[in-house]
Each structure stands twice: as C-alpha cells, then as structure tokens.
Amino acid sequence: MSEKEIQVKDKMELTEQEEHTQPGPVFVPDVDIYEDQSALTLVADMPGVDGDHIEIDTKDNHLIIVGHITPAAGEGEHVLLKEYNEGRFHRKFVLADIIDQEKISATMKNGVLTLVLPKIERAKPRKIAVTIG
C-alpha cells in the first residue's frame, strides 16, 4: 500500500439540469470502478448513508445510485466549525451491454457501497456436427 498522505478535497456538488423534488444539497460520491474476468465492481464512498437508505435503480441502461443520509447532529447543537456539508448522494452511470442487470448485487459497510455487476454469459462456441447423407 502506498504511504502517501490523503489530501483533503471539497465534496463535489451535483450540477445537474434536472430538478430534485427534495430540498438540500446533493453530492457526487467518489467512485472506483474495476473490472475482472467475470464482473465489474463499483465502489462508492457515501459516508452517513445507512444500508436501508440506498436506492439503486437500473432503467434504460442507466444505473442510478441515490443515498439518503441521516443528519449526524443532534437536537440543540450549536455549530462552531463547519468544514463539510451533509447532503444526499446521487450518481448515474450508463451500463454497458455486457452487464447482466438481473444479477447486480450490493453491499454497504462503513459508509462504502460495493456493487458487483456480473457480465453476461458469453455465447459459447458450438460445434456443429455434419451428418453425411
């Protein structure tokens, strides 16, 4: 593992043309996507999002991930320092044809969403027997 120091970066706010029905800021989660022989894996940082408050939709070959947060601050707290904002997470991807949309699975741990997108079974090469008439 690299021994580099993590640099702080501002949370990126979603700049999308469509309007959201709920008020409040919306952020774009940081995402890693990697591919191996059998599947694509998508890993997204969504701190503050509970496993029950995640929506994963696939429609029209788009994968939409929405994470709702439960505000961390309790009642009657007075803010002294604010270096980050809280808000929903939203991100949309175009799915390639090789993804088997029926078999997508998701897990959530420590505010990190892991989506496994299995590839479809490739058409297996077939041998055609020729019968001699």
Partner: peptide, 29 residues
C-alpha cells in the same frame, strides 16, 4: 452553508451543546 476548509484531511465539523462538544468527520471505509 459556506464551508471553510483547513486543507488537512479529514474535514471536521465541530458543534456543542450545554454538556458536550461534538466533533465529526466523514471517514468512509
């Protein structure tokens, strides 16, 4: 809300009530 950053990871939010100070940081994973 406007946020001001310190340039150091992780970003922190600090709040207080009568009894406690609460320090929060987003550290996913």
């Amino acid at each position: 809300n406007l946020v001001r950053t310190s340039g150091v990871y992780p970003a922190l939010n600090l709040s207080e009530d009568a009894e406690n100070l609460y320090l929060r940081a987003e550290l996913p994973g």
